[in-house]
Design a protein around this nucleic acid. Sequence first.
DNA 1: TGTACATCAGTGAACGCGCGTTCACTGATGTAC
DNA 2: TGTACATCAGTGAACGCGCGTTCACTGATGTAC
Lengths: 201, 201
Amino acid sequence: MVLRATPEKREEKERVRQALLRAALRLGAQHGFASLGLREVSRAADIAPTSFYRHFSDMPELGLALVRELVNPMVHTLVTQASEGGALSERLADALVAAVNADAELVRFMVAERVGAFVILRRAIAAEFDVLTSVLAKTQRSGPRAARSSFAAAAALALIYDGLVRALDVQPDQRAALREQLIAQLAYVLEASDPNEGSDA
Amino acid sequence: MVLRATPEKREEKERVRQALLRAALRLGAQHGFASLGLREVSRAADIAPTSFYRHFSDMPELGLALVRELVNPMVHTLVTQASEGGALSERLADALVAAVNADAELVRFMVAERVGAFVILRRAIAAEFDVLTSVLAKTQRSGPRAARSSFAAAAALALIYDGLVRALDVQPDQRAALREQLIAQLAYVLEASDPNEGSDA
DNA sequence: TGTACATCAGTGAACGCGCGTTCACTGATGTAC
DNA sequence: TGTACATCAGTGAACGCGCGTTCACTGATGTAC
């Protein structure tokens, strides 16, 4: 006798689960994910501390869910936007600024936990970033001087990561200026390896 | 009546203070600085919890001391080593690997708290990194195409930061390979802006 | 249709524990005269 | 030289508090027949 929850039930459970994830993200952006407690997050999500266990066995498991269910889609959106038409440097800078504007808390979590306390989270986030690197390398490999393209991809990824960090520490109205700066920096490292790549801007 | 502590007394106090700083660094590398408690650090430094207050008023103040007294010298050593003779890319890569070999815990603290939970620590560490950027920009400015030199400096700093992060997540015996990779990447972004810069390796 | 039973998210009470902080104290070592 | 006093790093007891976790329970809603 296998009982299945009704769609409404599953939907309701998912709502609470999302509330927990968002609460952890918001509080983690303020005090750091490693210092978050199960009670603190549950309180912010308006459930009893004991109800936490209906969704996650502990905080690290919640962190992994954050990577799988929120960081992963964000990185893929970033890759998709960067693969659309136009100059690569511009597309990357736009996608980056868009990510920070759309969900600064998630970006904060991503860049912080990439070098954070939990090994398991560092690994998971590094894996997400690797997707971005290989996409960049592929884009570059289409041009000449393929050997140098991996250097360009590595430098571009480092600039992107650095750009995310700087965008977070800057007022929203200054992000346009940061975008211009990023475009120039990315063009510098990307176009040097392949002059055929778009350089109209 | 101003009483001054004898040199031996001050020395002894300094020893305990250093024990606290090192303990915080070691534990912070494992569980993250934001999650450290005053009692935990005091225990690791072999003093009573109440004695902590003879040195710092709270953990954030200890964190600031870490930046001022340990991060600052490390960055300056890095700058000094990078300013010696030889190809710039090599000097930078060597200085970076040397820093990780000499004090991985300190490097971990530095890169983690640069994007960590405490605003005050983020600011302090960003200020230290700015020194490195200006030194890089000056080195580049000596060559032609001065306008592009700031892009090269920004890209190089991003690569350096990225290199530190990767060096930490790699076994010590793999750091030689990472050094080679870094030299190539740095040469790529630095020499592109100034072909006159050393490129013998 | 009614009845018995299963599932399961959410709950409140209770537990033992480590936390940050306060306090009054000790003991070594200085200065004043 | 001796005596009175000041300084100050380190300490142990005690406090109130929030933590993670266990437990038995509720109530809504499913299935079996």
